[in-house]
Design a protein around this nucleic acid. Structure first.
Lengths: 153, 153
DNA sequence: TCTCAATTGTTACCATGATAACAATTGCTA
DNA sequence: TAGCAATTGTTATCATGGTAACAATTGAGA
């Protein structure tokens, strides 16, 4: 039983390392299943659209916590590859609504079980209560930082 | 009181959003304090070296969970800006040991209190036990993923 | 000793994270 | 209604995340 002192912990680093693990796992999964034509981040966009098609770019950016320039770039790539299409909205000509194509729907159907596997694996040996505790504490830390530094993501 | 179901949570997204908050807070802090000549990630390297000077690049990469190409690039930048210097090691001519310059030490001395402020702020309203629980659960998730996907960071 | 695999740092390449600045559009308000 | 601020998407720029491939070096084993 190792004893940890909370002041010895670099929580930011711990979280960054966890993100690295997710990324590595995601990329390995894509490679194993032959999904070389798309990235983990791009699939994130397709997954969002599979839940709610026709979101416009800023909405996608907000959901995923990314900037608009990033979304523009990724959507460019996804459109070039034929996974999504952009459509102008007559009621507000500033926005571009984004829709999955049939090719995009196929891709997301293929990818969903892979994500599901990770969802299950990450919680191995953890109770439902522990999971909720983890998320709750994580959100608290995030809220603390956002308030202290006046950040609105 | 909102009731959350663990299957409704996208933990990967939660963690990614938390990282975004850290990044935004860090960058905002750097800007406010006029540290426009360096980034949060670069300061991370300086901080590591302030704890243990003379590490070689792969060691730094392992500590920070980054790839060697990334470290090469960042060290290039830090060396160009005069914050660190590389030195060959005669006992092993493959490695390059990295040392803080006096300019680098100044920078890290300036940055340390800023990091300290974030360390305190992030835990606002949390008990020591909660902090340890959070880290413990976070590490468990990371370990689960690393084992399931055979990842060695 | 010779050979070959592993390690270290590098380069090249692509995708993402982030900021600043811009045009087009919308909407508030004086 | 005229003007101006806010919103949306885009472009350009720099830094980081990640992979593949490479040269130099090291080290272990035949």
């Amino acid at each position: 039983m190792k004893k940890i002192n909370s002041t010895d912990i670099d929580l930011g680093l711990e979280i960054a390392l966890t993100v690295s693990a997710y990324r590595a796992a995601g990329q390995k999964t894509l490679k194993i299943h032959g999904l070389q034509d798309i990235t983990r981040e791009q699939i994130g966009i397709l997954l969002i659209l599979s839940l709610k098609d026709g979101l416009y770019q800023t909405q996608i950016a907000n959901i995923l916590g990314k900037d608009r320039p990033n979304i523009t770039r990724m959507i460019d790539i996804l459109e070039t590859k034929g996974f999504i299409k952009r459509e102008k909205d007559d009621s507000n000509r500033r926005i571009l609504k984004v829709y999955l194509t049939s090719k995009g729907k196929e891709k997301v159907d293929f990818a969903k079980p892979l994500k599901e596997r990770m969802s299950v694996a990450q919680y191995k040996g953890m109770s439902d209560e522990e999971i909720l505790t983890l998320v709750s504490l994580l959100r608290k830390v995030r809220k603390n930082i956002e308030e202290e530094y006046d950040i609105n993501l």
